[in-house]
């Protein structure tokens, strides 16, 4: 294998480049004024709930500093929860507590925090420590996802999530992101998480990469990645497709997590989805985009769009 691929070959593969993504897809299909809807997780959550999509249930929102003092009351009802900044990015400022007795709060690695620690963390979120550009923020407290046991061995510490690219309402490509020791439990591909390409028709793994290069097994657990199969796949596709009507964004990255008890839940939306999904699927996005752009009537209900995708994009 040579060190680089010629632009002509890339074009043949239909690979979407960064410049084209920015100019033709993000500015072309995503209205700027819709961005706040997806950049603020609380707004996304409220939007999704009113659209009837399943989201991790909201335990509470802390908006003002004086509410921080009563946070103990709020947390009493929940065994496990996570506190995250509404406008955070890249998983910053997310505090996960999997058990507590109202005095000690335990992180997943069983480190104990006091209520004062929780309060300080919440204050930091409000002050904008984790938000983009340091603007004042809100803290969201939500139900902790119990991820599906079938994926327990595929992930190191973090929760695996599924990214689906939705173009004009059509889910076109999907991948699962598995955190690794190298990525420090985060599901960010450029930090070393494993990206598993998921066949859009069947929901089965088709290919996998780490650091932009193919891998066969999870580097920490040694599990064979090609065995991954997501149950209830059409449900996930439907959920992703409905995010189009909900957000109005024509080029969208939908992040979904699988909860062991409540099934797929919409985690967040991204108006600037990355390009690594193409490497994870070993396939370019452009051909699928073009197939959808070529459709004369794109005003279909979400189910019909999923149907179309499953008929057209077989591997």
């Amino acid at each position: 294998m040579s060190w680089f691929i010629s632009p002509r070959k890339l074009r043949e593969q239909g690979v979407l480049g960064m410049n084209q993504r920015n100019i033709e897809y993000i500015s072309g299909y995503n209205d700027r004024r819709l961005f706040p809807l997806v950049d603020d997780k609380l707004k996304t959550k409220q939007l999704a709930m009113s659209a009837g999509l399943t989201v991790p249930p909201l335990v509470g929102v802390v908006e003002y500093q004086h509410q921080v003092n009563s946070i103990g009351e709020l947390l009493k009802s929940q065994d496990a929860f996570c506190i995250k900044p509404s406008k955070g990015s890249g998983g910053k400022g997310i505090l996960v507590i999997h058990d507590h007795d109202d005095q000690s709060y335990f992180k997943p690695n069983n480190q104990a925090l006091t209520l004062a620690d929780i309060k300080r963390h919440t204050s930091n979120i409000l002050a904008g420590l984790f938000s983009l550009g340091g603007q004042p923020d809100k803290a969201i407290i939500e139900y902790l996802i119990h991820f599906d046991e079938s994926f327990a061995n595929y992930s190191y510490e973090g929760v695996p999530d599924i990214r689906i690219i939705v173009f004009k309402g059509f889910p076109v490509m999907a991948m699962m992101r598995l955190s690794t020791a190298a990525s420090d439990g985060k599901a960010n591909l450029h930090q070393g998480a494993v990206g598993v390409g998921i066949d859009i028709v069947s929901g089965k793994a088709s290919y996998a990469i780490q650091h932009d290069r193919p891998v066969a097994k999870h580097p920490d657990t040694g599990m064979l990645l090609s065995d991954i199969c997501i149950e209830g796949w059409p449900g996930l596709l439907n959920m992703a497709a409905r995010c189009y009507e909900m957000s109005g964004l024509g080029y969208l990255g939908v992040d979904i997590v699988l909860d062991a008890r409540q099934g797929p839940m919409l985690l967040e939306l991204n108006a600037r989805p990355g390009l690594a999904i193409q490497i994870a699927n070993n396939q370019g996005l452009l051909k699928r985009f073009d197939a959808i752009s070529a459709l004369e009537d794109v005003h279909m209900p979400p189910e019909q769009r999923v149907d179309f995708v499953q008929r057209s994009f077989s591997a």
Binding site: S2, F4, P214
Partner: peptide
């Protein structure tokens, strides 16, 4: 990107 997408070769 010619290097990044090299794996698609």
């Amino acid at each position: 990107e010619l290097f990044r997408f090299n794996a698609l070769h």
